[in-house]
Design a protein around this nucleic acid. Structure first.
Lengths: 132, 132
DNA sequence: TATTGTTATACTCTATAACTATA
DNA sequence: TATAGTTATAGAGTATAACAATA
């Protein structure tokens, strides 16, 4: 119960940091996924981000209208869309990385390296315990 | 960044557990606040729960229509509503406590007492670092 | 005027179901 | 029929702004 409260506060602070930097958590996850590997299909992206197809469509619509990504039909399988980052998308990625790193520094203030490693390991186990 | 992902997963798992038990996180926070002290004004409750007055009104409307709380004007200051738990509200509180405890057991599987105390302490510091 | 609470409205994130188009 | 994606709709949670009632 105490853990859940802290988890919510920490999670929300990260969301707020991304919004303050002109993005959002879903946008961040999509940008990270594309930065790792692209082009990707929407089914693939949705699975990586952890949302439904229709939810991803919603976010991609917003990102496409902001010029952050492009969607092109795959000539080999015209059902699928190949999603790719634009230059503006890469710029937004670096903008959000910067914000996330600044947030991370603030978050781990007062933590030593060893302690931080232990914390990360423990959080990973908590996440596994809830099926994440 | 890893921490934020784990925090979100842990936070959401708690929300899901409360929903599965017939409640929600805001309902839980309101019930806990009233169980600690009642009657309380809505300004007071909203501050404790961490939402705006209008947001609290929204949740109290739902809880009142489910018979979990009552709102009565304070005769001494007719602007304020005194919010109180009904028998059904207390029953819902215990129902959600039970669910939260079950969830907590699952969450901390594999953690020893000492390790758990260290984790709680560390999470408290993280929360403080983000201004929670 | 200041405070308490409600109403109206809107926004974000998410989901399900029905649909289109391709295979 | 099965798959990829879109559209329509909805619901939860939150917020701001305008308002009414009371002090």
């Amino acid at each position: 119960m105490v853990v859940a409260g802290a988890a919510k506060a920490v999670s929300r602070a990260f969301d707020d940091a991304l919004v303050a930097a002109g993005g959002s958590r879903p946008m961040w996850l999509i940008l990270v996924a594309l930065q790792m590997r692209q082009p990707r299909s929407q089914v693939d992206l949705a699975a990586e981000v952890g949302v439904r197809d229709a939810t991803l469509t919603h976010h991609l619509n917003a990102m496409e209208s902001r010029g952050l990504v492009t969607r092109e039909r795959d000539p080999a399988n015209r059902r699928t869309h190949q999603v790719q980052l634009t230059d503006a998308g890469r710029a937004m990625f670096f903008q959000l990385v910067t914000a996330a790193q600044a947030h991370d520094r603030r978050l781990r203030a007062g933590f030593g390296d060893v302690e931080l490693a232990a914390l990360r390991e423990a959080l990973g186990r908590l996440q596994a315990n809830v099926g994440g």
